[in-house]
Design a protein around this nucleic acid. Structure first.
Lengths: 202, 202
DNA sequence: AGATTATGTTAGTAATTACTTACTTACAAG
DNA sequence: CTTGTAAGTAAGTAATTACTAACATAATCT
């Protein structure tokens, strides 16, 4: 017979299954049937734990947002210098994507961006918070004389978030044939060297 | 009564409708019913022009690939210097996204990446061709002494494609509240200045 | 003008979807 | 051991999906 689990355990199990399936099938395509099969219960069992599919997605989104916030909160508090914090923030982001490859797809899915306004706003806030962290540390670096002139911290932050997104896309399209964290950090160093340069050429 | 159109006209009309709906509804969510309503015909009429939904998507993908290839072919041939070609290539890409906002979503949709292997491979080839264009011109710039040392053309090309993707994402998430082409070109100039810098600081 | 054909419609189909209802049973507490 | 409840199932539902077959008519050609 089937071993029963506590509702809490089953819920986290279902959310994990959604994260996994969102990567393989796609966030906008996975069905409650897919989820049930992955977990190993009947379809009806899913609705015992989440009244609607929308609320299931809300739970998934909340879990993601929590994880992200926690990850870069740690990155900020565990690093001393602005430069170290910057590196830690980028590394944290890359690691999160590496652990949960469906993350970008879910963040841009219509499931959450069209059907779930509350969660969309939360994600927007979380991502703005990340951008603010980057800007703050870039600003501190500029004041410490570690940045060449002519680059606004805001623009630099956009270049860095773009770098992360670009790596993530290249990683996905290329069937994840390289390690995302070291490759991302390598390119980060390239960009940081560019930031640090001072003299210009005609 | 309904005015009938030639099959060719109707096909392009349907493809245009798909591109529009893919942006509003999402590539993996839009139905043949949605398309029919948008075009103003019955659902069955869609299947008069495309035998299956998969073949419709193939046509849409082909149209996109053609458009992209054509756009940056023009960019390459109409510009004299490597630097001008680089700017033209980025501008072309930004303009394509501006004209067809669904482009990134379709490129990464499961519809084309899971269900249509042939088209996925074509897209991969097209994007690699773009990357090759960037690398070639960055290499020419380096040989002309227009690039500071220490940055490989390949890495620089990755930074530039990331920049385009990052701008596109920011543009989408921010409800397209800014003009994508000028904002993208502004950030491109920032990155190009960084590339051109030479002396380093400790 | 009349015949032909290509573009359309109407009215279906089987499969899949999210979700429900009524019933069952594993499990923890007394 | 008994018992109440929480976690599960079996068997449905109506709505939506991609797709089809038979019929209709606007457009085109001679």
């Amino acid at each position: 017979m089937l071993r029963r689990k506590s509702a809490e355990d089953r819920k986290t199990e279902i959310i994990a299954a959604v994260l996994d399936l969102a990567d393989r099938i796609g966030p906008d395509r996975l069905t409650t049937n897919d989820i049930a099969q992955e977990v190993g219960v009947t379809q009806a069992a899913i609705f015992r734990h989440f009244p609607t599919k929308a609320e299931l997605w809300t739970a998934v989104g909340d879990a993601i947002a929590d994880r992200l916030e926690c990850a870069w909160q740690q990155a900020v508090t565990n690093s001393e210098s602005p430069q170290a914090r910057l590196r830690a923030l980028i590394a944290a982001q890359l690691q999160q994507i590496g652990e949960t490859p469906a993350l970008p797809a879910i963040l841009h899915s219509r499931e959450l961006n069209l059907d779930n306004a509350a969660l969309r706003d939360r994600f927007r806030g979380v991502l703005m918070q990340y951008q603010a962290h980057l800007v703050a540390n870039l600003h501190a670096m500029a004041q410490a004389g570690m940045m060449g002139a002519g680059v606004q911290p805001k623009d630099a932050a956009v270049l860095l978030t773009s770098l992360v997104q670009g790596i993530a896309i290249r990683w996905s399209l290329g069937s994840r044939s390289f390690d995302i964290v070291p490759e991302g950090m390598r390119l980060l160093e390239v960009q940081l060297v560019l930031f640090a340069r001072k003299e210009m050429q005609t």
